[in-house]
Amino acid sequence: MSLFSPYQKHALHLKNRMVMAPMTRSRTTQPGNIPNAMMATYYAQRASAGLIITEATQISDDSQGYSFTPGVYTSEQQAGWRLVTDAVHQAGGTIFNQLWHVGRVSHPVFQQGQAPMAPSAIKPTDTRVWLVDEQHPDGQMVECSIPREMTQADIDRVVNDFANAAKNSVDAGFDGVEIHGGNGYLIDQFLRTNSNHRVDAYGGAPAKRVRFLIEIVRAVSAKIGADRVGVRLAPFVTFKDMACPEIVETILLASQELEKLGVGYIHLSEADWDDAPQIPESFRIALRKAYSGTIIVAGRYDVIRAEEVMANGYADLVAFGRAFIANPDLPSRLQQQLPLAEFDKGPLFGGGAAGYTDYSNYLD
């Protein structure tokens, strides 16, 4: 099994096993958080990936937590995404749209002045979001505010918003969607005991804490088909104040439920900083036992580690993030063992073509 060999399973028909990981870049057209031609160029440049997963995309006007991130709930946003999907498909690529609701990782400026919603009214400590305003046109990191606890009506509406966003995504030309259930955002907040103190059907035991995720997956699958649905989970990522002693057990339970629902893949987001915890082999074995579908892993992989995790049967596809920013032709560069450019962190969020679509000029 090679990172550069084709992969086919259910709705995935990929030319290689390399995935471009979802990465927030905040380049939308304002007002309206509308995807644009520059974004189409950016993704099309990287269409040699077996699968592209887009930056996280808002499902509604109150699901946002960072400036200039795209939505898929208005006709203008859908038209903008159509530019992207057409460009990627013309370049021979496959692209899924990552759908998110940030929950408590937000600020009232994104909520029409109201408190963000969350499973429980618990503010995350040491958690900030990127905000552009008149006083800070280049953006600033600001502390999250205290959220309000979601009502049943809120929960029902958000489930429906995910389903509608999935349908809008497919109508805009996407090959499928990924539901963002990790990294401290709304679904992840329901999964963890430290952020979910509910005493109703959505809180308490693991089986209750996975309910919100499963309701979303069912609703999305009913709109576009389960085999076109991926789910991102992050049991070992604890930033945004998300340490939970029961999360591994909860994630494995969720994976068993996702197996029953027949989703297209699970995307395991692994911590990627220098002293990050290693994923125990016992967890990888348990995940594969719980879920027989496609597994994607992401977290500072190189070719050797990628092929090792696939050879062991713990993953089928491997996602690359920062390396894809600076190397639009990453698959061929890795396969030919060519030198890689390094990305410039300066223009990571916001800005124009610099550090976004101009990396191809840096390479021979």
Results as ranks from 00 to 15, higher is better:
Phe4Trp: 06
Ser5Arg: 12
Gln8Glu: 14
Gln8Asn: 14
His10Ser: 15
Leu12Asp: 12
Lys15Tyr: 09
Met18Cys: 10
Thr28Pro: 11
Thr29Gln: 15
Gly32Gln: 12
Gly32Val: 07
Ile34Lys: 00
Asn36Asp: 10
Gln45Ala: 06
Arg46Asn: 03
Ile52Gly: 14
Thr54Ile: 02
Thr54Cys: 05
Glu55Thr: 02
Thr57Asn: 10
Ser60Gly: 15
Asp61Phe: 12
Asp62Glu: 09
Ser63Lys: 08
Tyr66Arg: 02
Tyr66Leu: 01
Ser67Cys: 08
Ser67Ala: 13
Ser67Lys: 09
Pro70Met: 02
Gly71Glu: 13
Gln77His: 12
Trp81Ile: 11
Ala87Thr: 10
Gln90Ile: 00
Leu99Lys: 07
Trp100Asn: 03
His101Ala: 12
Val102Met: 13
Gly103Ala: 14
Gly103Asp: 09
Arg104Val: 05
Arg104Asn: 11
Val105Glu: 00
Val105Lys: 04
His107Glu: 11
Val109Cys: 11
Gln112Ser: 13
Gly113Ile: 02
Pro119Asn: 09
Ile122Lys: 15
Thr127Ser: 13
Val129Glu: 03
Trp130Cys: 04
Trp130Asn: 02
Trp130Tyr: 13
Leu131Gly: 03
Leu131Thr: 08
Val132Thr: 01
Gly139Met: 01
Gln140Pro: 00
Met141Gln: 11
Ser145Tyr: 01
Val159Phe: 09
Asp161Ala: 15
Ala163Ser: 14
Asp171Met: 06
Val177Trp: 07
Glu178Phe: 07
Leu191His: 08
Leu191Thr: 00
Arg192Asn: 05
Asn194Lys: 01
Ser195Glu: 01
Arg198Ser: 14
Tyr202Ile: 05
Tyr202Gln: 10
Gly203Phe: 06
Pro206Asp: 11
Arg209Trp: 01
Val210Pro: 06
Phe212Ala: 09
Val217Pro: 08
Ala219Ser: 09
Val220Arg: 02
Ala222Met: 03
Ile224Ala: 01
Ala226Val: 03
Asp227His: 14
Val229Pro: 15
Val231Arg: 02
Arg232Pro: 04
Pro235Thr: 12
Phe236Asp: 02
Val237Ala: 13
Val237Ile: 13
Ile247Thr: 15
Val248Gln: 15
Glu249Pro: 03
Ser255Ala: 15
Ser255Cys: 14
Glu257Cys: 05
Ile279His: 10
Pro280Tyr: 07
Pro280His: 05
Phe283Val: 00
Ala286Lys: 10
Lys289Thr: 06
Ser292Ala: 14
Thr294Pro: 08
Ile296Gln: 03
Tyr301Met: 06
Asp302Lys: 07
Ile304Tyr: 03
Arg305His: 06
Glu307Met: 03
Met310Asp: 00
Ala311Glu: 13
Tyr314Cys: 02
Ala315Cys: 11
Leu317Val: 10
Ala319Thr: 04
Ala319Leu: 10
Phe324Ile: 00
Leu330Gln: 05
Ser332Phe: 00
Ser332His: 07
Arg333Glu: 03
Gln336Met: 04
Asp344Val: 00
Lys345Phe: 06
Gly346Arg: 15
Pro347Asp: 08
Gly350Met: 08
Gly350Val: 04
Ala353Gln: 04
Tyr356Asn: 08
Tyr359Lys: 00
Ser360Trp: 15
